[in-house]
Design a binder for these strands. Structure first.
Length: 476
RNA sequence: GCCGACGUAGCUCAGCUGGUUAGAGCGCUGGAUUGUGGAUCCAGAGGUCCCUGGUUCGAACCCAGGCGUCGGUACCA
């Protein structure tokens, strides 16, 4: 059984993946429930697709025979067909709608949450598996649909606890961008168009002169690496940059104007903002594009300011369902980056109190374990009778009192129940409030006093109602 | 992908120009308390110095390649 050191596997997490902590799981679950409730209120219904799709259904990129896992995780089925792990929730939705097109009511409003996978270079806050929460409307070409998505996104942010000034839903239209690109003389199929769009997209990352370099000759980064630019001349660069200049005349397209009017009329004008520098999802968006951004600053553990920036985005993708049908199907949607938002919420809450652990019934005499067990069961029932969730457990390890208290401390138990033979004989139990004890201990700095003190420990009659009442007192 | 920095105990790190038994703080385990976590004191355990190869009498230290982490940049359908 014993393995030699050489063939023992190393316990290690794959790059770009993360184990999830209890705090994270609980926080995320609460957030997702909040988001779900907002979507339901707006009349969206849940629908889910599997993690795996045929590779050709996911997008224009088929896995390359030589590098099948570039960007997506892909593998071959036993019939040699390529399967991929989904990299977002939009492409699978498009597949599902296309496959069930005739029996789907339109406009079709649906939402879903789930893990998506990208085989890319991971970074802090950037994982190869992450959670998205999407809402989409398929079959509505009207700007009403785009506006509805934006307003619902604003409602979502507020339901999650962000005040109107702390976030913005920024909206633009690809039609504005297309207009300017045509104006500077780049034909529709010119590859430089993408380079220009990417440069504009970096406006929140670099100052304008750096953007100008990306539009023109190119830019050298801090490590000395060179990024090739779009090669525009000075006049073209000037025109593109005017888009980012608040003083310049505002460019706007019909769809964008309509969305602006609708949200203003609905009272969302402050929260949903028309902003020509929003680019996003360069390839498949065909009209409106949106982005949810946090506008406040927070500091990390080291005290440095962190900008969370974009925590969600989306847009109109009239071509995606159509890929399967040969005719465009209007569709628009929005995706919340759940993990990123959770990180932002956690950072904002700061060092929020760690969630309380279980009430622990300690084991003093091993021969009395049936008694402890019975007490634990009854206590669990009593403390949870009102539908609360109060974890209660009996210590099930093999160690002595000292280790049991240490265990309780590590579990962040609010209190422990102690009953030795003395207490049992007199029909009592000890209840020790660990948090209060910790506070009391800080005043003690010599051993004698320490040993003598039993801070924050009370003795009560050993009937369940009395014990439960004493514990409730500590829990509140 | 490209550029750069880094990789020593569970964690944060020290380790002088390559020289014998590789250190500290915190944490962990045990004891002071055979019925008590958290303060205090004492003791202890814990390391293929990321891996492989090379240079050298000798490598944690120098060189090459690999892996990993971090930062920048690119890509992100």
């Amino acid at each position: 059984m014993a393995k030699t050191k050489a063939n023992r596997p190393k316990a290690r997490l794959p790059r770009g993946f993360a184990d999830r902590t209890p705090a994270e799981i609980r926080r995320t679950a609460a957030m997702m429930e909040t988001i779900r409730a907002v979507y339901e209120r707006w009349g969206f219904e849940p629908v889910e697709t599997p993690f795996i799709e045929y590779a050709d259904a996911l997008g224009k990129f088929l896995p390359d025979e030589d590098r099948p896992n570039e960007g997506v995780f892909a593998f071959q089925d036993d019939d040699e067909q390529w399967l991929s792990l989904r990299y977002d929730l939009t492409a699978p939705l498009a597949r599902m709608v296309a496959e069930n097109f005739d029996r789907t009511p339109k406009p079709y409003k649906s939402y879903r949450a789930g893990w998506v996978f990208r085989n890319e270079k991971p970074g802090p806050g950037r994982f190869r598996q992450f959670m998205q929460f999407d809402a989409d409307i398929v079959g509505a070409a009207s700007p009403l649909a785009d506006a509805e998505i934006c307003m619902m996104a604003a409602d979502t942010m507020e339901a999650l606890g962000f005040a109107p000034g702390e976030y913005a839903i920024r909206v633009n239209s690809r039609k504005v961008l297309d207009g300017i690109l045509s104006e500077i003389g780049l034909p529709a199929d010119d590859p430089r168009r993408l380079t220009v769009l990417r440069a504009i997209d970096k406006a929140d990352k670099f100052p304008l002169p750096e953007i100008a370099k990306l539009l023109g000759p190119g830019r050298e980064d801090e490590s000395g690496d060179f990024t090739k630019g779009a090669g525009l001349d000075a006049a073209q660069t000037e025109t593109v940059l005017s888009l980012l200049d608040p003083a310049a005349e505002r460019r706007i397209s019909d769809d964008l104007a309509a969305i602006g009017d609708i949200v203003a009329g609905a009272g969302y004008g402050e929260r949903v903002i028309v902003d020509p520098s929003v680019v996003r999802g360069l390839e498949y968006y065909t009209g409106a594009v949106f982005e949810a951004e946090l506008t406040f600053e927070i500091t990390d553990e080291a005290g440095r300011p962190v900008r969370f920036g974009s925590v969600g985005g989306g847009g109109r993708y009239d071509g995606l369902v159509g890929r399967f049908r040969g005719e465009d199907v209007p569709a628009t949607g929005f995706s919340v980056g759940v993990s990123r938002l959770a990180a932002a919420l956690a950072a904002r809450e700061g060092e929020s109190a760690r969630q309380s652990g279980p009430v622990i019934v300690t084991v003093m005499d091993r021969e009395a374990i049936p008694d402890y067990q019975a007490m634990t069961t009854k206590l669990r029932a009593a403390l949870n009778a009102d539908g609360a969730t109060v974890p209660v457990e009996m210590y099930i390890g093999d160690s002595g009192m000292k280790a049991q208290l240490k265990y309780a401390d590590r579990r962040n138990a609010p209190c422990v129940v102690i009953q030795g033979s003395n207490e049992r004989a007199s029909g009592k139990v000890q209840i020790k409030d660990l948090a209060a004890g910790k506070r009391a201990a800080e005043a003690i700095d010599n051993r004698e006093e320490w040993v003598a003190a039993r801070p924050a420990q009370i003795e009560v009659d050993a009937d369940i109602a009395t014990i439960a009442a004493a514990i409730r007192e500590i829990l509140t």
